[in-house]
């Protein structure tokens, strides 16, 4: 079926199968492989992307349901070759190890800062707790959130 969607600021008209999920659309149809799947049931958060600015598990969203929506993936962050402040903060705090959760974690942080540009540590924990990092790089993620929030533009654009 036909889907008109804006993905990373590009307007796209796509033909998708009804039984295809948003992550299938991103990875298989569009080659946006920065978004990865970990559990397929909405628990781990590796596949987090923003739909209309809010984080969702792209493994549970039907591709057909992004018709008319705005989708942002990790590939859509940063401008003119410069990294997004959240990405910079992740680098600064070494807030990743194997990296498999990282794209999803960064997108969740984008969602957090968009809603709450100056989150307390408790608020950040509450919001991000659903993004699992088995390497255990949690303190560094919280550090990155604090840095990104403090950076001049708040990182929450």
């Amino acid at each position: 079926m036909k889907v008109g969607v804006q993905i990373n600021e590009r307007e796209l008209e796509l033909e998708v199968a009804t039984n295809s999920t948003l992550i299938d659309l991103l990875r298989e149809d569009l080659g946006l492989r920065g978004t990865v799947e970990g559990c397929g049931v909405g628990v781990c958060g590796s596949c987090t992307v923003l739909v209309d600015g809010r984080p969702v598990s792209s493994c549970l969203v039907l591709a057909a349901d992004v018709d008319g929506r705005v989708v942002t993936t990790i590939e859509g962050l940063g401008r003119n070759g410069a990294l997004d402040p959240v990405q910079e903060a992740f680098l600064e705090h070494q807030a990743f190890q194997c990296g498999y959760c990282t794209a999803g974690m960064i997108m969740a942080v984008k969602g957090l800062l968009a809603e709450n540009p100056r989150p307390s540590a408790a608020e950040a924990k509450d919001y991000l707790s659903g993004n699992i990092c088995r390497c255990g790089t949690y303190e560094e993620v919280l550090g990155a959130v604090a840095t990104a929030a403090a950076s001049s533009d708040g990182g929450g654009d």
Partner: peptide, 9 residues
């Protein structure tokens, strides 16, 4: 309920 991603859906 669940996590913020699920609650958004």
């Amino acid at each position: 309920v669940a996590n913020v991603r699920i609650r958004n859906l």
